[in-house]
Design a protein around this nucleic acid. Structure first.
Lengths: 209, 209
DNA sequence: CAATTAGAGAACTCAACGTACTCTAATGGG
DNA sequence: CCCATTAGAGTACGTTGAGTTCTCTAATTG
């Protein structure tokens, strides 16, 4: 009622940003969580910073204070969501280990991480520095994991000694990604079983030359 | 000099679209060629209709008269640029055939077709109808080609009868695409040689179960 | 308490997709 | 040849979303 002469440049008497605000890590986590939910819901191509800000009930400026670009927020949300790469199956059977790993990766690809992979291919991996960061952050890549499984299987006599060549170690992962990228998620279980039984198991039973 | 009272709504006395114009198929081809060049130069993500129009010295409206959306122009340019899928190598050696096919595909991926594949993965293959069109237009896919090579090799006794399972037939193509998409072009020749010698040749020498 | 920081909401600029419009170069038919 | 029609070149426009700037003021700290 008594507001004399403070007209200012824009007199919005209705909006004054009242209300409780989150700060620091609490807000950081809320935004990241909203980003993951948005990615899962609309996919990579249709993911927008505006929508995430609305979902997180945050200001877009708060998003950009933490993440310089759209892709940064997406990748950060995904890194936070990756499973621990140190928990590998050890069933005593090479086939069962390989099946378990590929099924787990297939399930992962059937969520926001799979969507982010599509973005990786167009917006990230074509940039040298970002590609290097991704390779460092995503340590649980297929070839390393398969290397551990094969080493154990060689000791058990299930796989041929010296069968763990670079191209072979990549094969399971490459086939799974191929199916996901070109045919969509979820990768059917009969395909995963086929990859293991028709390709992986016989491939590592054969010596390399 | 004598132009009385025809002021019209916009009197631009300097621009009147003078000059020779192309029509029909000649213009169609010029636009498609410009699209291919632009894709090769700037990649999928940074490809713009404006740039293609400028490169083709055409009007954007002429582009949209023929191709409803950006992705339509990109895909049409790529289809036109695909090699004839009916020309397969037949060297008498399975290894040489496989090497030849993978090297040829690798070279193709090292051009605009590779860039378009990235776009496929984010903007096309997530759409059911467009995905079906792509599958029909790109008939020379890896598994079919490998199937022909393996059938011949089985007859020559180089590959095991019954070794041509679906997952195996996809393997070469999947590994090549994996390397292209995740590590960029060109796929080094030593990788291609490794795919053939470490994976493909032993894999098809082994019976399936 | 006062000063500082940073969060919420709004407004803004720009690029690019896609659309509409004007002027007029080609083409085809009578 | 002339006229009507088509479509091509260039421009302007609306919309969307990335990214930026600004204002107000809720939190935090000393």
């Amino acid at each position: 009622m008594t507001n004399p002469g403070i007209a200012g440049r824009r007199p919005p008497p209705t909006d004054h940003r009242k209300g409780p605000r989150r700060r620091g890590e609490e807000l950081h986590a809320a935004i990241r969580s909203a980003a993951l939910a948005e990615l899962a819901e609309v996919g990579y191509a249709r993911f927008t910073m505006d929508a995430v800000a609305v979902r997180a009930k945050a200001s877009k400026a708060s998003l950009y204070r933490r993440w310089p670009q759209r892709i940064d927020l997406i990748m950060d949300a995904i890194y936070e969501n990756l499973p621990d790469p140190d928990t590998l199956p050890d069933t005593g059977s090479f086939r069962e280990d390989a099946l378990s790993v590929l099924r787990e990766t297939g399930a992962l690809l059937d969520g926001p991480a799979g969507e982010a992979m599509r973005g990786l291919l167009t917006d990230v991996l074509t940039d040298k520095e970002r590609a290097a960061e991704v390779r460092e952050r995503v340590r649980g890549n297929g070839a390393n994991v398969m290397g551990v499984l094969v080493r154990r299987a060689v000791e058990r006599g299930e796989c041929a000694p010296g069968s763990a060549t670079p191209r072979r170690l990549e094969t399971g992962s490459a086939l799974l990604r191929y199916h996901f990228l070109f045919n969509g998620a979820p990768v059917p279980d009969h395909v995963i079983v086929g990859i293991v039984d028709e390709v992986i198991v016989p491939l590592f039973a054969a010596p390399a030359d």
